[in-house]
C-alpha cells in the first residue's frame, strides 16, 4: 500500500507515486481521482466487501474452522437457525440489554453535561470524572467491576452487608446479571454521550441566555425553555448512535459473565463467536451473522428515516 511519507518540514513537495502533469493529458483529469480513492478502496474491498460476501457464501456450506472437507448444504444452516432457540434467546438478550442501557446512557449523559458545563478547576474535575472511564479498555473495566460485584468481600456486597441487607450474587443470579452488566456499561460508556452533549451545550451562543436573562427568565425557565429544547436534535443523534452501539454488545458480557448464568446474558455476537470458533461451525455462525446483520440494517434504516424526518420537520 502506498503510504505517503511526509517530509520533515511538511512544506516541500511530498514524493508522489506518480507525477501528474500540471495540466495533464485528459486521462489524468478523467481517471486521476481514482488514485485518491484507490488505497481506501483496496482496503475496503479486501476487509469489508470480501468478508461480507464470503460470509454469505459460507452460510450455505458446512464450513468448519478445522478445515475438513466442506459440503454444500443449501439452506440447512438457515433452517437450523430459525429452529434454534439459542439464537432467539441470545438475540433477545441483546435487545433487552439495548432497551435497558440506552435510556440511562442518554439521560445521565445529559444531566452530567448540564452539571459539568462550567469553567474553572471544578469544571475540569467534573469532566475528568465523568469521562475518565470511557478511555479505559473493556478488560480493565470488567476486571474492576467483577471484583466490585464479588460476593463476600466485594465492594457492593460489602456495603450491602454493612447496611444490614442480604448479599446479592450479582453476576451469578439470572435476573441480576444483566442489570449488573448494564450498570457497568453505563459507568463505562456514558462519558462519550456526555461529551457529545457537552459540545452541543457549549455551542449554544451566550447571547441566547443573555437575552433570556434580560427578559427575566429564571434559571429553571432557561433550562426548560431554552437549553433542553435546543438539545433535542443532539438527543436524537445520541439515541441513534447509542442504539446501534448497544446492539453490538459483546465485550463486557463476555468478560463479566461469559454469557451466564444459564445463558441469561449471552448476546447474539457471543453466540456467533461460540459457534464459529469454539465449535468450529463457521458456516452456521455465518448464517447467524447474516440474520443479525439484517436486524441491524433494519434498525439503522428505520432510524435514518425517523431521524431524517425530524430534520426536515425542523
Amino acid at each position: 500500500m502506498a503510504v505517503q511519507t511526509p517530509t520533515r518540514t511538511g512544506t516541500t513537495e511530498p514524493q508522489p507515486t506518480r507525477q501528474p502533469p500540471r495540466n495533464g493529458p485528459p486521462w489524468t483529469e478523467k481517471w486521476g481521482g481514482l488514485f485518491f480513492v484507490a488505497p481506501f478502496g483496496v482496503l475496503f474491498a479486501f476487509f469489508l466487501l470480501w468478508p461480507t460476501f464470503s460470509g454469505l457464501w459460507n452460510s450455505f456450506f458446512n464450513t468448519s474452522l478445522a478445515g475438513v472437507q466442506q459440503e454444500f448444504l443449501g439452506l440447512a444452516n438457515w433452517r437450523e437457525m430459525f429452529g434454534d432457540p439459542a439464537v432467539w434467546d441470545s438475540l433477545q438478550n441483546t435487545l433487552v440489554f439495548t432497551a435497558m442501557s440506552t435510556p440511562p446512557l442518554v439521560i445521565i449523559a445529559l444531566v452530567m453535561a448540564l452539571l459539568a458545563n462550567r469553567k474553572g478547576l471544578l469544571g475540569w474535575f467534573l469532566r475528568f470524572s465523568y469521562f475518565a472511564p470511557f478511555v479505559m479498555p473493556a478488560t480493565v473495566v470488567t476486571l474492576i467491576w467483577v471484583w466490585i460485584y464479588q460476593p463476600g468481600f466485594g465492594l457492593v456486597n460489602g456495603l450491602l452487608t454493612a447496611g444490614g441487607s442480604a448479599e446479592i450474587d450479582w453476576l451469578n443470579t439470572e435476573n441480576r446479571a444483566m442489570l449488573a452488566v448494564v450498570i457497568t456499561t453505563v459507568w463505562w460508556t456514558v462519558g462519550f454521550n456526555f461529551l457529545l452533549y457537552l459540545a452541543a451545550l457549549q455551542g449554544i451562543p451566550d447571547q441566547v441566555y443573555e437575552a433570556a436573562a434580560i427578559d427575566g427568565a429564571s434559571g429553571r425557565q432557561q433550562l426548560f425553555r431554552i437549553t433542553l429544547p435546543l438539545m433535542s436534535r443532539t438527543t436524537g443523534l445520541i439515541v441513534v448512535l447509542q442504539l446501534v452501539a448497544s446492539l453490538k454488545i459483546f465485550d463486557q458480557i463476555y468478560l463479566m459473565t461469559d454469557g451466564g448464568p444459564n445463558y441469561a446474558t449471552r448476546p447474539i455476537i457471543q453466540y456467533i463467536y461460540e459457534n464459529g470458533f469454539t465449535s468450529y461451525r463457521i458456516g452456521y455462525a455465518s448464517a447467524i451473522s447474516y440474520m443479525f446483520f439484517l436486524v441491524i440494517v433494519i434498525v439503522s434504516i428505520a432510524q435514518f428515516r425517523l431521524f431524517g424526518g425530524r430534520k426536515e420537520a425542523n
Partner: peptide
Amino acid sequence: LVPPQVLIVPLFQE
C-alpha cells in the same frame, strides 16, 4: 451500515 462485529467469522477465515 456493515457492523464490523458481524464480520468476525469470515474475516478470521480470510
